[in-house]
């Protein structure tokens, strides 16, 4: 999927997700002017050893960006308090249908991985 030879590393090619950093706070979803991000999550109680009471954590179930709609403004990247979203220079992800431009957690997490 990565075909970014000769492309500046800071190029705004695609938006990558680090799912483990996402707290499902919904800031990106609500601030997106194109309404192109969708997020689903549920709460789970986690009891850590030695803790007095269980902690509630948000678990990410689904995260999609519709790159057909996305205007690549980067507001989501800028506003994410946990740096879960980041630009990657990849550009080679054309699709044969508009639904093929809707990327889920697996695709969004794959961007930039092969260069690390």
């Amino acid at each position: 999927m990565t075909n970014s030879i000769g492309i500046p590393a800071q190029a705004h090619g695609v938006i990558a997700l680090t799912a483990s950093a996402c707290t499902s706070c919904m800031i990106c979803v609500r601030e997106c002017p194109a309404w192109c991000i969708e997020l689903e999550s549920h709460d789970e109680e986690v009891t850590e050893p030695g803790a007095r009471r269980p902690r509630t954590v948000s678990v990410l179930d689904a995260f999609t960006i519709d790159f057909g709609l996305c205007m690549y403004c980067g507001i989501c990247v800028d506003l994410c308090p946990f740096d879960a979203l980041a630009w990657q220079p990849d550009f080679d992800y054309a699709a044969g249908s508009p639904s093929g431009l809707v990327q889920g957690i697996n695709e969004l997490e794959s961007w930039g991985k092969s260069r690390e």
Binding site: I7, C70, P98
Partner: peptide, 16 residues
């Protein structure tokens, strides 16, 4: 037949 994403897409994306 093909939808090229980007706003705008890079020239390289056209080739791809």
């Amino acid at each position: 037949s093909v939808y090229i994403p980007g706003c705008p897409p890079r020239p390289e994306a056209l080739i791809a």
